[in-house]
């Protein structure tokens, strides 16, 4: 089937099998390999991307369901040079170790801060329930998201 998807701001047309998962389309056809596969059962969140601004697990969605829609992956989050504030905070707070869950974690954090700019610690922990990490104990991820929230709200407060 022919699909047309806007991915990271760029319109893309492609031929896919109807059963192709969005994650495989992104990884194998578009070579956006920052989107990771960690579980096959939609529990780990390593494949998290934004679909029309909403956080989804791309292993649970068919590529054809993304037709005529907009996808944002980790590759499209940062500006051309440098890092997005959430990515910056992750580095500053040592919120990643092996880095495999990280792209999904960052997308989940970004989605949370988009809808709730100043989340409490329990809200952050709750929002990350769909994203598993085995290295960090989540401690520094939670710290990083709080730090990113603070940084972003300061930035917005400036005239």
């Amino acid at each position: 089937m022919q699909i047309s998807v806007r991915v990271n701001g760029k319109q893309t047309s492609a031929e896919v099998e109807p059963r192709t998962l969005l994650v495989h389309f992104l990884r194998e056809q578009l070579r956006l390999t920052g989107v990771h596969i960690g579980c096959d059962t939609s529990q780990c969140g390593a494949c998290s991307v934004l679909l029309d601004g909403k956080l989804v697990k791309s292993c649970t969605i068919l590529a054809v369901q993304a037709d005529e829609r907009e996808v944002l992956t980790i590759e499209g989050l940062a500006p051309r040079e440098g890092l997005h504030p959430v990515q910056e905070a992750f580095q500053e707070c040592h919120a990643l170790q092996c880095g495999f869950c990280t792209p999904g974690m960052v997308m989940a954090a970004h989605a949370l801060l988009s809808r709730r700019p100043n989340p409490s610690e329990p809200e952050i922990r709750e929002a990350l329930r769909g994203n598993r990490c085995r290295c960090t104990g989540y401690q520094n991820i939670v710290t990083a998201i709080s730090a990113a929230a603070e940084k972003q709200s300061k930035r917005e407060a400036q005239p």
């Binding site: 990884r27 194998e28 070579r31 956006l32 390999t33 920052g34 989107v35 990771h36 596969i37 992956t73 980790i74 590759e75 989050l77 940062a78 890092l83 990515q87 992750f90 580095q91 500053e92 040592h94 990643l96 880095g99 495999f100 990280t102 792209p103 960052v106």
Partner: peptide, 21 residues
């Protein structure tokens, strides 16, 4: 010190085995 390996891992530019084609 902040980790030097982080920028590639944070931007999806890490290379894990499944990324190799």
């Amino acid at each position: 010190r902040k980790r030097v390996e982080d920028p590639r891992l944070l931007t999806g530019q890490g290379t894990f085995v499944d990324d190799i084609q």
